[in-house]
């Protein structure tokens, strides 16, 4: 194995901004997810194989990797979203606060109640701005101080000032970036434990992207974020921990994703221990 000695290319290609606090040592972090030997299959064909990693509380964890490496499949395993796909199956375990949520006896509704999700494309409901946030609260029975809860969620999502005068307007009248922030407000209004974000900025312009990154940064004291992104700069900017997924190929042309390396973001981007990670973060691949 040959390692490049010119580490400056790495620093040039990805500027790691260090406005985050230094991360406490890993032993002192609280584990929120413990994923062990997770295989996920669609129609019997593996999409990811043998993924094991821990996700820590009050950190932003980024999942990066080339397209088709199973990033989205993995994150959708974390809140049982894949249950909606009929041909899906999985083996291995995902322990959430010690409880295996892949157990068929666990109600996916309860899982998703605690582990919210923001999707790749903004998907506001065809309702008013206010109702988009209030609907989940009402359904889940969080009806006390409804208006306050809506305002707090919109404020946390950095949208309140832009929409406070037109809460009754249709959510579809908002711009793409505003819609995505509304979806974040909708997700955090019900006070989940974890917020999963599946490429939340891929359909957005740079300004809206920056707003969403800023928002994650300011909210991570209250929530735990797991974000899938194909944008390495974004991972470097927002994430404390970064997991790099890559595509493996079988002998008969099968492809599946697997976890190559998982470490502190700084380590992944400046001194990766795997050649494949290094090739990816230096832009030599994918």
């Amino acid at each position: 194995m040959q390692r490049p000695n010119d580490t400056s290319t790495i620093e040039r290609s990805v500027k790691v901004e260090t406005h985050r606090q230094p991360m406490p040592p890993r032993e002192r972090l609280e584990r929120i997810f413990a994923v062990e030997h997770l295989d996920a299959l669609y129609g019997g064909k593996p999409a990811i194989k043998d993924v094991s990693m821990d996700v820590y509380k009050n950190l932003v964890t980024a999942i990066i990797g080339p397209s088709g490496c199973g990033k989205s499949t993995f994150i959708r395993c974390l809140n049982r979203m894949n249950d909606l796909i009929p041909s899906f199956s999985q083996t291995g375990s995902i322990r959430y606060h010690g409880q295996d949520i892949t157990d068929p006896g666990v109600d996916p509704v309860a899982v998703r109640r605690n582990i919210g999700m923001v999707f790749q494309r903004p998907n506001p409901f065809p309702k008013s701005i206010q109702d988009n946030v209030a609907w989940g609260l009402k359904v889940l029975g969080l009806k006390d101080n409804l208006d306050e809860r809506v305002e707090r969620a919109l404020t946390q999502a950095a949208l309140w000032d832009e929409v406070k005068d037109r809460l009754k307007a249709s959510a579809l009248s908002l711009s793409g970036g505003q819609q995505q922030r509304l979806c974040i407000a909708r997700a955090i209004a019900v006070e989940p434990d974890v917020v999963l974000m599946d490429e939340p900025a891929s359909a957005l312009d740079p300004i809206a992207t920056a707003a969403i990154e800023q928002l994650m940064h300011s909210l991570k004291s209250e929530y735990t974020f797991v974000i899938v992104t194909h944008n390495m700069q974004q991972a470097a900017r927002v994430a404390d921990m970064t997991a790099f997924f890559s595509i493996s190929r079988g002998e008969e042309g099968q492809r599946w994703g697997e976890l190559v390396e998982y470490d502190a973001t700084e380590k992944i981007f400046t001194a990766p221990s795997d050649k494949r990670t290094e090739d990816y973060v230096t832009g030599r691949f994918g």
Binding site: Y96, Q99, G105, V106, D107, A110, R113, D193
Partner: peptide
């Protein structure tokens, strides 16, 4: 059914 009681212990879900 016993798994459901486990659910309640760690997974919060109002009026589920």
């Amino acid at each position: 059914m016993s798994t459901h009681s486990l659910t309640k212990a760690s997974l919060r879900a109002e009026g589920l």
